[in-house]
Design a protein around this nucleic acid. Sequence first.
DNA 1: TCTGGGGTCCTAGGACCC
DNA 2: TCTGGGGTCCTAGGACCC
Length: 435
Amino acid sequence: MSIGLWETSAHLRSFPRAIAHVDGDAFFASCETALHPELRGRVVITGKERGIVSSLSYEAKARGVRRGMVLHEVRKICPDAVILSSDYETYSLFSKRMFAIMRRFTSQVEEYGIDEGFADLTGMQGPLHMSYEDIARTMKRTIDTELGFTVSVGLAPTKSLAKIASKWQKPNGFTSVPGRAIKDYLGALDVSKIWGVGPNTAKYMYSLGIHTAHDFISKPFEYVAAKFNKPHQEMWHELNGKSVWPIVAEEKTTYASISKTKTFTPPSNDPEYVVAQLTRNLENACIKARRHGLVARKLVVYLRTQQFEHAVMEAKITRASNFPHDLLPHMRTLCAKIFKRGTHYRATGIVLADLQSDTAIQSSLFEPAIQMEKFQRVYAAVDALDEQFGKHTVHLGGSQKTFTHTQHASDRTKNLFVGENAGQHLNIPKLVVVV
DNA sequence: TCTGGGGTCCTAGGACCC
DNA sequence: TCTGGGGTCCTAGGACCC
């Protein structure tokens, strides 16, 4: 075992760790190119469904295209651009393959995002008969070959440093930052580029005369403890080469919260329309909650005004639920409390929070079990129909307004309305569920 | 420079209790 | 009735990430 920097603190890990961060290069665009080789070398852009650039190939970057750019701007710059709708199922498959390859080298793999992850290689030189650098390089080569596009890899003693390293050279980069080289890398790095430092913290750091990551790690810990909160104190350790953020290798199976938000144009001051938007968000959030077998004990409603201010209000749900008809009354009450007449709103949001497993749900003594069961059957049927015919095949009458505003006639014929006037405008069988 | 949607974690402050 | 300390729980809001 090598004698590490942290040998002195017996409670901490007694040898340096080797952590690799793998970051896909232009991931979504690369997946498309891997799938359609004829696109290689071309300006490839995803995000067509939203009208803005979501992911872009390096060819697009070179031509001046940027993330978030409106697509008609893109067409002006690059008439030859290939603009595609996002295909998350395909991207997820590539993602799964990438993580599977990483797991060939260590079981300690954290899936941090769809296109990036960490691998803790500590202790693997022996079993794999390779140095850490060789393991990481082999991992990268294998991913590049098997996926058909490149990733960038950073290798360092901590997660925070590995993240910096993988960004150091992109695309197709490999950067190793061994403990003794930390200062060379951090001296040139603006604090705003550190993982965990956003615009506010960056501004605060500048005001303290801290401009580079090296300025930050050079401060004594007592100073950092006095001026910064917990996450930034941990960050200081990480950047100094002491690993304090563990690799979370357990697969994420549950959520702390589920939210659905929707921005609409033009903004509206019509309470009915706003409630209809919220109702749709609630339906969507409930669909997701049911899919994961989760029920909410807390409901949050928020409205965002034109000026980007937002009003938030939440309520406890005495009987946890993932059925819109249970949560709808709470939603209406909350909305009524924060809705201001005359104010124009540009977005609404619903958060289901304090989630618990629906197997743990206890039906109240006062709740007729039969009614509970009835609703469970109704929603099971709704979910099955949605599964077969598309989302919102069955939806609440209350969210109808959002569909008539946003959907094309051809889409609308897919919908069966729920409510008194269900099927009225359509020549399809009507399905009525009274809620 | 800030598009939009989906998340997580932390902190300060108040309520309440001993 | 006032003074003070201490703990816990909850809520609102902030900041950041992809």
